[in-house]
Design a protein around this nucleic acid. Structure first.
Lengths: 338, 338
DNA sequence: TTTTTGATAGAAATCGATTTCGAAAATATT
DNA sequence: AATATTTTCGAAATCGATTTCTATCAAAAA
């Protein structure tokens, strides 16, 4: 017999589909008594309109897509967690996909979701992405785009980010206050904005305390994993430059570096203080535990979804949004490594 | 102007919508030349049928829903990762949701997804779930259900699991071979099948090596996290019973226990050997690193999706499936804690 | 030549909702 | 009492595809 339909309700109440639909969509030309009769009955049988059918006329699917650059990553994971927590209570459902840091896959996924007529796409740009036409396509189809974490400044859309520059400043400052003057920095590649911002925060701190910047102390790690951290530390040692501190853009880099230091009898934190980034769960279980910057992933997930909702309602009212960049606060967590 | 529609193609080629649709759906009554003309044009403009519109007639949405009991959990995470990796290449899209180990939320999510007319639901049952009517509802609506990891044996559907009993046997046997005779077991609650199976595996190993079972060495941990592990270890010590080994059903429990042991000058692995479960990423970064059972999450994710595809094609052909329980192999990873 | 068959294409109904527009009934105004 | 206005409701068109059923035409069989 299948799911209850609009016409079933109409038949049962001896009304037309039109009237039932009007009640559901808040049209004013329905008698108060009739409205009540319909609402009561709907509550009784638990009717909800078929989204697929509604879409044909309304062009709204009540679905959104979250594209993550990585899945097995504590920070992105907590974003997903935070978003689901609040969004599951709404009528929206969530597509989830992973670009795997690939530009090609990212464009494919976006095109796929646009074909599915999602109402919005939430994206953190992949490491490879240099061209942004696929983001413009989202706007051309009248859909909402919300960028988070790894954003592109030139695209006009809401953006949710961590205040990376400030967080890095605080982290580096912490090392300076601990007495470090020769601080290494393991940074990311040249494109993602966050990698640049974190580097700038590091520079800010040096500047503030009149510590000369030495570009020999900067090491680029394309993949923010243990292996890259290990080898960056190796390169640092082999380069002969001296150091007493290390600020990395990821806990995994910090772990890899610490592994290398241990192997070479360089003690953490006695010989070198280390600060990571992201507050991976494992950073509080390593030996030594790692000082790190906690990024509010759950909060970010919530904000992304809420931002979409307000963006949508603004759009409906034909209004232009004002501040489209939301910076979330991060927090330095001090542990044994510093 | 919007997305290309069937009628646009029809107009451009001076054919009817019918013919275009027939080409797309492989009907035989289309001239080979016409078919080629249509296919060529479709390739040129990159047309794909609107899923929402198709659904109205075909009742297929080409969407599936994955319900995870937890998000921030390495194993479930890698299931999601594995599934996305292969499923993103298909025409299907993925809804993801999290029951948060709540029965109420689980039923709500399922009902929500059924309203959305998903083609299939992939579920790992929540810890709270005792009643299974909501699973039967999935079948009543003609949708496919695939259970994974935390399954319910009485429901007739494909099930993908780890061979938990055997894995636990191997883990416990490893402790025995290391010389342990008084092995603690931190188990889960009484319901999820996996918790029972892991306990049975532990018993199997004791039996095989003629080690008497002592129920005083079993501790129940409802939440498989560090805190529960810490307190279970505390209870074990306070109970006065002696021990030289510990097998837990989760790495987090093992970590918590090791933290307690360290605090009380009980050395791992000198005084007690410890084996965890799941191979969380962090278990290879703790001090000492933790011996554990690696569960092939990625593989499980792939299998779940593949199983759905075969189940669907069997259903279409009106065939009954044979073996509906797939057991995946796990692997003991030996590290410093044992 | 007439009839039958087969190949090909399209008209129209359908899926389940939304929305426009017009009709009928109730009420207000003159 | 006649007319104008407001309330309330439903018929029908629509969204974009699929599918059934019918029509046409050419080739084959009678």
């Amino acid at each position: 017999m299948g799911r209850t339909k609009l016409s079933d309700i109409a038949k049962a109440l001896e009304l037309s589909k039109t009237t039932i639909s009007k009640v559901l969509n808040g049209y004013p030309d329905v008698n108060a008594l009739t409205r009540k009769r319909v609402l009561d009955y709907i509550k009784e049988v638990g009717f909800e309109a078929n989204t697929q059918a509604s879409f044909l006329r309304t062009k709204e699917t009540k679905t959104v897509a979250l594209i993550l650059p990585q899945i097995s990553h504590d920070f992105f994971n907590s974003i997903l967690e935070g978003m689901l927590k609040i969004a599951q209570q709404t009528e929206y459902t969530f597509y989830v996909a992973c670009s795997n840091e690939s530009y090609e896959l990212e464009t494919k996924l976006i095109s796929k979701f646009l074909k599915r007529n999602v109402d919005a796409i939430f994206l953190s740009i992949s490491r490879e992405t240099r061209n942004f036409d696929h983001l413009r396509a989202i706007h051309e189809e009248g859909k909402i785009l919300v960028l988070y974490d790894k954003i592109e400044k030139t695209i006009d859309c809401p953006k949710i980010i961590i205040d990376d520059r400030k967080a890095s400043f605080t982290a580096t400052e912490h090392l300076i206050k601990k007495g470090c003057r020769k601080i290494l920095h393991f940074r990311g590649g040249f494109l993602p904005q966050i990698s640049i911002d974190r580097y700038l925060g590091y520079r800010d701190a040096l500047d503030k305390y009149d510590i000369p910047f030495d570009k020999e102390r900067i090491f680029i790690c394309e993949n923010a994993n243990e292996k890259d951290g290990f080898f960056a530390a190796k390169k640092a040692l082999e380069s002969g430059i001296d150091f007493d501190g290390l600020f990395t853009i990821s806990d995994l880099l910090a772990i890899g570096a610490i592994q290398f230091f241990k192997k070479n009898k360089i003690q953490v934190p006695e010989d070198i203080s280390v600060v990571g980034f992201s507050n991976w769960k494992l950073s509080s279980f390593t030996y030594p535990t790692i000082t790190t910057v906690d990024q509010p992933g759950n909060l970010m997930g919530e904000k992304i979804f809420q931002t979409f909702l307000t963006e949508k309602s603004l759009k409906k009212q034909g209004l232009d949004p004002e501040n489209r960049e939301i910076k979330l606060p991060s927090k330095l967590i001090i542990r044994e490594s510093s």
